[in-house]
Amino acid sequence: MSKKHYFDPADLAKFGNITAWQKSMGDKFFAWYGEVMKEGALTEREKSLIALAVAHTIQCPYCIDAYTTTCLEKGSDEEQMMEAVQVAAAIRAGSTLVYSTQMMNHAEDMTM
């Protein structure tokens, strides 16, 4: 078995194997996952853009490959995909910056 990489693109195709050692839970996960991603109040295209943004936030290389493909399949273009990633980045940056209110509060409490 190769130990050269922590991430191997070929492993994405083995995602279904996660049911192997816990079938009941794994089957429930895939059923739920399928239900979440199918067309509902949001279109499959919109959901795939959300998934792409989240994939970048959690920095999952498998998810980035998978949802780049899915976004293209569902008809999104580069501009839309990059905007989705910018949204993820903005929320992530904002979530850092919003903590600065705590820093400012604390600083004000202890300074003249």
């Binding site: 279109t43 499959e44 008809g75």
Partner: peptide, 20 residues
């Protein structure tokens, strides 16, 4: 006619049509 502009398969026709 929509056909993918790369090495991927087309998604569902109804969703693509609505967005187009």
């Amino acid at each position: 006619v929509y056909n993918p502009t790369g090495a991927f398969l087309p998604g569902g026709q109804a969703g693509l049509e609505a967005e187009f």
